[in-house]
């Protein structure tokens, strides 16, 4: 494997680590483990933990995928491995 390709893969893994950490924190963190504590904060009529569990985490999931697509498309071009 050329160094260039190693670098591409490393960058890919870095993106994955960051995005999946966010994925974990919003769903398992805010939506489950800390939901009870967050429920003491209210946004409009929503207790915050409840909102994360039933609404917020899903919005974040959608955004994460689109961010990932953008990052990877740029990365593919940068390392010239994109599809012609």
């Amino acid at each position: 494997m050329s160094n260039n390709m190693k670098e591409y893969w490393k960058r890919n893994l870095k993106y994955l680590a960051i995005l999946l950490s966010i994925w974990f924190v919003v769903s398992y963190g805010c939506g489950i483990l800390f939901a009870d504590a967050l429920n003491s904060i209210k946004i409009g009529g929503f207790p915050l933990g409840f909102w994360f569990a039933q609404q917020g985490s899903i919005y974040v999931f959608v955004v994460l995928i689109f961010v990932y697509v953008r990052l990877m498309n740029k990365l593919d071009q940068e390392f010239d491995v994109d599809e012609k």
């Binding site: 995005l19 999946l20 994925w23 769903s27 939506g31 489950i32 409840f50 569990a53 039933q54 985490s57 899903i58 999931f61 994460l64 995928i65």
Partner: peptide
């Protein structure tokens, strides 16, 4: 919420 998150989070 376990169903809401469980059946969407897998797509990530």
């Amino acid at each position: 919420a376990q169903y809401l998150m469980g059946w969407t989070g897998g797509y990530v």
